[in-house]
Design a protein around this nucleic acid. Sequence first.
RNA 1: GCCGGAGUGGCGGAACUGGUAGACGCGCUGGACUCAAAAUCCAGUGAGGUUUGCCCCUCGUGAGGGUUCGAAUCCCUCCUCCGGCACCA
Length: 817
Amino acid sequence: MSVSDYNPEEIEKKWQKYWEEKKTFASYPYRRKKYYLLEMFPYTSGSIHIGHVRNYTIGDVVARYKLMHGFNVLHPIGFDAFGLPAENAAIDKGIHPRDWTYRNIDNLRYQLKRLGLSYDWSREVITCNKEYYRWNQWFFLKFYEKGLVYQKKAPANWCPTCRTVLANEQVIDGRCYRCETPVVQKDLKQWFFKITNYAEQLLEEIENLKDWPLTVKKMQINWIGRSEGMEINFELFPNGFKIPVYTTRPDTIFGATYLVLSPYHPLVEKAIKDEPSIKSEVEQMRKEQLIKGEVEKRGVQSSLWAINPVNKEKIPIWIANYVLMEYGTGAIMGVPAHDERDFEFAKKYNLPIKVVVSPPENNFSRGNLKQAYVGEGKMVNSDRFNGMLSKQAREKMSEWMQSMGIATPRVHYKLRDWCISRQRYWGTPIPIIYCDRCGTVPVPEKDLPVELPAEIEITGKGGSPLKNVESFVNCTCPYCGGKALRETDTMDTFVDSSWYFLRYASLKREKIPFDTQEVNYWMPVDQYIGGIEHAILHLLYSRFFTRALRDIGLVKISEPFKRLLTQGMVIKDGAKMSKSKGNVVDPQKIIDKYGVDTLRGFILFAAPPDADLEWKEEGLQGVHRFLTRIWKLVVENKAGEWEDKFEKIYLNGKNREECELQRIVNRTIKKVSEDIENRFHFNTALASLMEFVNYLYRYSDKKSKIFKEALQILILLLYPFTPHIAQELASKMGLKEDLSHHSWPEYKKQLLESERATVVIQVNGKLRDKITVAPNESKENIEKEVLNREKIKKYTRGKVIKKIIYVPTKLMNIVVD
RNA sequence: GCCGGAGUGGCGGAACUGGUAGACGCGCUGGACUCAAAAUCCAGUGAGGUUUGCCCCUCGUGAGGGUUCGAAUCCCUCCUCCGGCACCA
């Protein structure tokens, strides 16, 4: 490479080996103040990509920084090893999912180690090991006992050609990703976790997550989707059968001109019986509803009629594709004047539109609306409520309807129960047995784990692959001893990732999922770092799981992740890196060329962690140059032994240059510490280190003791970012200690400011001059001085000085007429 | 449509609570070293104007208004891009 003998590969491998042999990053409970740092574990696909490197590098900086502050840091890693791609590999390449997965894990582990990350490898978790997934089964049984698990029919994506169930991500534009056959929906009996039991808690307690990004919190709030309204009973005419509808606008009930049932509403069967000609129409609508996205509204009028309970009006009952069975009661009152969707529908089918809320402007002609009016206003056409404000009417009418026994207040959520059944092989078997005599029975705890059979043929055809493994399917009922069949679905892999952080936090774990005492010591995770794509599902499921385990008595806490950082994407040529775009950068190649420290340094320097990062090869060279400059600076100027009395640097400044160096050292320590601690702005921290290095290059007396001390500080500050070169240079300077055990330098407040401050002088807010003053100089003295300056006189001559604003040590603004 | 986030030099990005806009890096230009190149080191680098030259002036943070002594930062209106949700009654 050149003059410098900085050889990244050699020193990086050397220190990686050292850390591994010394178990530098092994952690044990109950000592000192704990700090649990976690990055989202990788899915076991092929190899590490730049996104992983970014994620794990950010974490590593924080881990090493916290270690230097004396924290007992828990920093584990593992592998999210169950999932669909393993089965795809089996189909495409004929490799057993298990072999594919373990081969990938070996590769990933090797690559992660080459990144020099400060992991406690002894805590590694691999979710496809039976030692791990048996506890998924155990939790399933516990949840079952608690009534948090139930089974119901639910539609699954079905490809008629492949004769298999597809995951949502395998359905592309309504077609099978493999053969492009249109996907149909098929009702299957599936297992659900009752996450909706926790909907209110999960929503309310979002506000306790003070250190989570606002966007993630907003996304979860929207996802849970709480709404308050009334359930109002309409009556079927003439027999009085009750049809409850849910609305958030009970104030508009006098404007209901029809009633709509979801095509899946139970009453629809009766409607079809009465009027068989609508059957095909209804079936068409049912199909339409299963397709994602908005379709044109359509419906059909049934032969049924309903009575509006407040005015006894007889209104028609329609069946329409825009009403969902899963939300509310599956039936709505149609108020076209005040609901956009009802309006669109009523226009299409010429249904009457009755205004009951008059907007404040109040000049709209009845029956001639261009669009629905959804805002607040004055009640009209609403009997005794006329003239009342709609907001008030909402309360009064609710009370009134309640007192008549026709309505009850209701809260609804968009959040649905979590369907955990997957018709897949490579996942955790659901521990359930179907017995003809005893029915659906859970596998007894003592029989866990229900092991995934090794012998399997995966074809991508048919239903659950486990159905064809007779030795798996056929079993005996644990209660009556008779012949029985096993459940052949496996669990959603989000179950695996909903508690892995608890498993990490426990060293004793053969006979238990985790040690409660240890987990109570380590939890919650103090800092969690990962991609924004997990903002909803993974993070919400983990919050649910933690609460469920709390209620079973296994953990104390409710929130698993105290502080969350969602890192931005890595962009190249204006697009997210992806194989299909062909813009993928292989981290291994970068490491081979520049070393890990350069790669880490660049990723940290190019953008703050929560912003997207633009990949630029040239930027790497800049960071490499920076590291080489440090290398040269230290190697050429180190002298004597590493001196561990850093306080000297605060006291020993004798001449002007030394005093300036002191000041810069102190400012740099402050800047780097605060950038890491408060904001994770590693880019600006590194920028200040670059400025520091540039200054040290210009420093004249490089043989002085104070200069050597400055170099030591530089190395300490550098360590979290580029640990290998920092550790090597420290050792070259004679330090025997591991830098992660060395204390972080502290700055002295009184040495941050210089004896002279530069004050900017403005006239009417425009920069005109600068002046250096003593920091404690009085406003009056500075004023006197400033107003006498020729430059300033030029602007004040002949003008009236109205005001002078002085911001001490920073700025003086002279305001003239 | 609704909810977030972002728009700053040729580029990535700084400016933390309103107080010198453009730190740091890349790129580019010039110089030193060299037979030459690479590497390295030093200097310059928002746009425009003015000047022999240091100087100095004007404009400038997506657009337009406003608040303020002072706005990239706060308020209003709008545009563009990115992400999430999307018939949830």
